[in-house]
Design a protein around this nucleic acid. Sequence first.
DNA 1: AACGGAATCAACCGCAGCGAC
DNA 2: GGTCGCTGCGGTTGATTCCGT
Length: 242
Amino acid sequence: MVRSPRFDKNGLKKGAWSKEEDDKLRAYIQRYGHWNWRQLPKFAGLSRCGKSCRLRWMNYLRPSVIRGNYSKEEEDLILKLHGDFGTKWSAMAEKLPGRTDNEIKNYWHTHLKKRAKSNPQEGQVIEQSTSETSPENLSDSPSEQTSESYPLPAEQTSRAAVSSSYCDYAVFSGLNWVAEDSINSVESFYEPIQNFWTEPFLVDTSFNHAWSDLVEGEIMPSYYHYDGIELFNQSMQEMEAI
DNA sequence: AACGGAATCAACCGCAGCGAC
DNA sequence: GGTCGCTGCGGTTGATTCCGT
């Protein structure tokens, strides 16, 4: 089901991701977030292009991604959203927290396209019966509508509330932490890396400033050499121990 | 049991949009 | 206003699995 691994002319790996690669990417983003997808694989020690890393994270490794069968309600909503949005899969994904655009797209092509074709009226029927979940009535916050439309286990609901970017790695690590929360909670959880959290790239925008000027081939900015690599390796060991 | 076509889904590719300079 | 780099999106591909014969 997955493409066999191979290397392109630039030495970048393509094809299926190994568990080791997944672990590296997950651990890296858990620690540092995805401050720059293009540079990320270099610092994470991956022979992948940034695009591939981003896709793997967004569609597979991201903690808020729900894997598993689609419920009848989800199917109906996808049918209806397809009527509203067409092939705007990312817009549809926003209304289906935990499902990725790629996943919805695949599911549409493999399951729902035929259903929609054989019963073109279905979307309209669904629209009437599920008017409370129509885009116009949906909250701007995906997580809010999720908890109403599709009750999720508490853990999933809280995860869905923190959907992307720099928050994901914190959620993944089980911190139940969101951006607005105090840094203190993180510091107390991860005592050994408190310097990391107080360094410049703690703040979203500072990621770029702190990292974008790196010299090619330099693994970490000099002032992060110890904390960065050592703690990254430590993180990997911690994960393996779990 | 063996084969072939259909179904599935992770991953790739190319392009558009956006912000920075 | 033009160019460049980066990100995200939608369409497509291809390896694997499933299922009927």
